[in-house]
């Protein structure tokens, strides 16, 4: 089956991102296809490379980045939600004059528009929302 996954909450405060990660990982292990993982609302905060959780805790961002690298996952962060919350790639940091080195998007994530969410809903057999 072809799944699209939506993550609507940030890391650590809510379980949504962890559950979405476990779901995505399990689906891939079972041989399903993940068409896209879309991060919206505070979910965009999963995509900052600047989190430094204590060493004895899980690293939510790193979990996602590693899963993406291993499985060539398409992980998309909504641009409007990301800009409100300070998640920037090189291009956006430059465009908004935020200074060199201020891009904070983590490996495996890309910033794009809400159209990517709708398109995922159209293309996937099932769209699964993880949120509050």
């Amino acid at each position: 089956m072809k799944f699209a996954v939506v993550v609507n909450e940030g890391p650590y405060t809510h379980q949504a991102s962890d559950t979405a990660y476990q779901f995505t990982k399990a689906a891939l292990e079972k041989g399903h296809e993940i068409y896209r993982v879309f991060f919206y609302h505070d979910g965009v905060n999963n995509a900052t490379r600047l989190t430094v959780p204590p060493q004895d805790e899980r690293n939510v961002q790193k979990n996602w980045s590693e899963l993406a690298e291993k499985n060539a996952l398409d992980m998309v962060v909504c641009i409007a939600a990301a800009q409100r919350r300070g998640i920037l790639d090189e291009g956006e940091a430059k465009r908004h004059g935020k200074g060199e080195g201020s891009a904070n998007i983590a490996p495996g994530f890309r910033i794009s528009g809400l159209g990517q969410l709708i398109e995922a809903g159209i293309q996937a057999d099932r769209l699964v929302v993880f949120g509050d």
């Binding site: 919206y40 609302h41 409007a80 939600a81 409100r84 528009g113 809400l114 159209g115 969410l117 709708i118 398109e119 159209i122």
Partner: peptide, 19 residues
């Protein structure tokens, strides 16, 4: 909370997809 506003943004963008 921001959910209502950002939900509305999805609806407006989604309208272009003629679903």
């Amino acid at each position: 909370t921001v959910y209502a506003l950002e939900s509305l943004e999805v609806v407006l963008i989604g309208a272009a997809f003629e679903q």
